[in-house]
Amino acid sequence: MLDLTRTWAVMAKELVQLTRDRLTYAMILMLPIVQLLLFGYAVNDDPRHLPTAVLAIDNGTFSRSVVRAMENSTYFDVTLMARSQAELDQAMERGEVQFGVIIPGDFSDRVVRGDSAVVLVEADASDPSATSGALAALQGLPDGALARDLTGPLANRGNGAPPFSVVTQARYNPEQISAYSVVPGLLGVILSMTLVMMTSLAMARERERGTMESLLATPVRPLEVMVGKLAPYVIVGLLQAAVILLLARTLFQVPMNGGWLALAVGLLLFIVGSLALGFLISTLAKTQLQAMQMSFFYVLPSILLSGFVFPFRGMPDWAQALGTLVPVTHFLRVVRGSLLKGVGLENAWGSLSALIVFVVVVGSLAILRYRTTLD
Rank of each mutant, 00 (worst) to 15 (best):
L150N: 06
P142S: 01
A134M: 08
R205Q: 14
S132Y: 01
P128C: 00
E213R: 12
N173I: 06
V183Y: 06
S181A: 14
T131Q: 10
L195W: 04
N173C: 05
P184G: 00
T194W: 11
L187C: 01
G188F: 01
R148W: 00
G140V: 04
N156A: 13
M198V: 11
Q139C: 00
V182H: 01
I190H: 00
A161L: 14
G133N: 10
G210T: 05
T211H: 04
A134I: 08
M212E: 14
Y172E: 10
R171D: 10
E208K: 08
G133A: 15
N156Y: 14
D127S: 04
M197N: 12
L215D: 03
V167F: 14
G144V: 06
L186E: 05
G210R: 04
L191Q: 05
R171G: 04
R205H: 11
I177R: 15
L201E: 09
G210V: 07
R207E: 09
T199W: 04
S126E: 03
P184I: 02
R209K: 11
T194N: 09
D143E: 09
T168W: 14
M193H: 05
A155I: 07
Y172P: 08
V182S: 02
G185E: 03
L215Y: 05
L146R: 02
L187P: 00
P128E: 02
N156R: 15
V189N: 01
T131K: 04
G188R: 00
L195H: 07
T211W: 04
P174W: 05
A147E: 13
Y172R: 10
D127W: 03
P128Y: 02
V167H: 15
L186S: 03
L154T: 09
Y180C: 02
P163M: 09
S200E: 09
Q176L: 06
L150K: 08
G158W: 05
L150R: 08
L150M: 12
L187Q: 09
Y172A: 04
L187F: 02
A137P: 07
E206L: 11
S165T: 15
Q139L: 10
G152Q: 09
R157M: 10
D143P: 00
L195K: 07
I177Q: 14
G152M: 06
S126M: 04
M203P: 01
V183R: 00
Q139S: 12
A136M: 10
S178T: 12
A155F: 07
N173Q: 12
E208D: 07
N159A: 14
F164W: 08
M197I: 13
Y180I: 01
A137T: 11
S178V: 14
L215N: 07
A147S: 11
V183H: 00
S129L: 14
T168S: 13
E206T: 02
L135Y: 06
A155S: 15
P163E: 10
Q169N: 15
S126H: 00
E208I: 03
S165D: 13
S129G: 02
R171F: 13
G140R: 10
S129R: 11
A170L: 15
L215A: 07
E175C: 05
P153Q: 14
S126I: 05
A134T: 08
I190P: 00
R148D: 13
A130W: 02
A161E: 12
V182G: 01
T194A: 11
D149T: 04
